[in-house]
Every structure is written in C-alpha cells, then in structure tokens.
C-alpha cells in the first residue's frame, strides 16, 4: 500500500498547496486585521445582537478578544472549507479513477481493493491533517508576531476537532465515491451535502428537533468555540466522530470489494 500512498500524495500535492495558500491567506487577514479594528467593543455588542442560531454557528465567544475573533472569523467555518476539500478530493481520488479507467492500471498490479481504498483514505486524512497543522503553526507564529500571546493549547484542540469532523466527512464522501463513478457527479453530491448539512446545523438551533436528529448532523459535533475559550472539548462528540470515521472506512471497503469495476 505504501507505493500507492506515496504516489497519490505526490499527485495531490499541488492542489493541497493551493488550498493551504488560500486558507493561510485568510488566516493572515484574520490575525493582522484584529489590531486594525477601531472599536472592538462595539463590534462585540453587535455580535451579541445576532440571532442565537447564527451565534451558535460561529460560537458563543467574546468577539473583542483575539481568540474570540479568530474563532468567529476563521476557525468556526474551517470544517466547512475542509469538507469541501474532502468532497473534491474523494471525487478525484476514487470516482475519477473508475471514470477514466486508470483503475485498470492500478488494479492490474498486485494491489487489493482494500489497499486501494485505504491508500485513498490515508492520503485524504494526511492532507487534511497537513492543512490543520499549517493553520495551527500559522496561528501560533502569527499571533506571536503581532505581539500577543498565542493560546496554542486552545488552537490545537479546536483544530483537532476540525480535523476529526472534516476527516469523518471525507471518509463518508470516499464511501459514496466507491459507488459513484463520475467525478463531476460526486463533486456535486458532496458539495450539496456539505452545504445542506452545514445549514441544517444552524436551522436546528432554532427548530425544535429531537436530540437524535441533532446528533446525526455532523457539524453539530464541532465545539471549537468551547476549545477556543479554554473549556476543552467534550469527549463524546469526538468519540462519535472517530466512530463515524471507522464506520465510513468499513462501508467503503465493503462496497468496493463487492462491486464490478
């Protein structure tokens, strides 16, 4: 499996670089812009007046603090960006191989289907981890450079949560990709799903829905605001995300091993 991992990692490196560049550009803006805000207290008051559902989505934080600012302006929606990356990645790394028949070359070699899917999952997770790590390092260094004390532990926990959530979504998208052979169709499906799931999380903040339904909404398991305010991460949602990743990986392998290619 290692040669497949190395090969795919090399082939996705350029795209990963562009994604990182974009996200780090946003992070730069967030870190640099904080000190240029004229009246942070007024901004914080404005934020307090936002509808509760929207505040829930961005996080119940004090916008006048650096960590609160970073949470609302970057960290709160980072999993949305990473999930979009995950959908595009799954379409390229799995569906495209079947659609363009490059799968015949790979599976003409002594590679099991399980190894093929595992290599796609591993590279996807490594890429997501790389983005999260880059954001973490950037925040720590960037905040220090603007003369403030970085809350490295808080950033690490928030980005760990972002990684687990986007990882679970990426693996779910890989599972869907094992049965959808067209790259463009899978991209459409995953982007649509991502946005619907994100909006549902906000909608469920105001709607009276059973807890079990909330639990089935992936973005419900994102608790970066808690992490960024030093309250740590709740264990159960993290376990749920890890379980979802395991389940998605098992489904991918199961479906891929049983289908015709």
């Amino acid at each position: 499996m290692t040669p497949l991992v190395l090969d795919l990692a090399a082939r996705t490196r350029a795209a990963l670089g562009w994604w990182m560049l974009g996200i780090l550009a946003m992070a730069t803006y967030v870190v640099v812009a904080y000190d240029t805000m004229v009246d942070l207290d007024a901004l914080s008051e404005l934020y307090e007046s936002y509808p509760p559902a929207l505040r829930q989505l961005f996080g119940e934080v004090d916008l006048s603090t650096m960590d609160g600012w970073i949470q609302v302006e970057l960290v709160s929606y980072l999993p949305l960006l990473l999930a979009i990356y995950g959908g595009i990645y799954a379409a390229g790394a799995v569906s495209r191989e079947t659609e363009q028949r490059t799968i015949d070359f790979i599976l003409g070699l002594p590679v099991s289907r399980t190894d093929f899917i595992a290599s796609r999952i591993i590279v996807g997770l490594l890429n997501l981890f790389s983005i999260c790590l880059a954001v973490f390092l950037f925040l720590v260094i960037g905040v220090a450079l603007v003369g403030r004390t970085p809350s490295a532990g808080n950033y690490a926990l928030a980005l760990l949560n972002a990684f687990l959530l986007s990882g679970a979504l990426l693996m779910a998208y890989v599972a869907i990709a094992t049965v959808v052979d067209e790259q463009s169709r899978l991209t459409g499906i995953t982007l649509g799903l991502t946005f619907v799931l994100y909006i549902l999380t906000a909608a469920f903040q105001v709607a009276d829905v059973p807890d079990v339904v909330r639990w089935l909404t992936p973005f419900e398991h994102y608790h970066s605001a808690q992490a960024m305010t030093g309250e740590g991460l709740p264990a159960l949602p993290m376990v749920a995300l890890a379980a979802a990743m395991t389940l998605a990986a098992a489904a991918s392998v199961y479906w891929y091993n049983r289908r015709d290619l």
């Binding site: 082939r11 028949r101 490059t102 015949d104 070359f105 003409g108």
Partner: peptide, 12 residues
C-alpha cells in the same frame, strides 16, 4: 494485464 483502451496517469 493490458486493459483495452488504456488509461494512465497523464501527469506521469
């Protein structure tokens, strides 16, 4: 194994 209508990774 040589597939019919061969497809290989274009950038390689």
């Amino acid at each position: 194994y040589l597939p019919g209508d061969v497809a290989l990774y274009g950038e390689r």
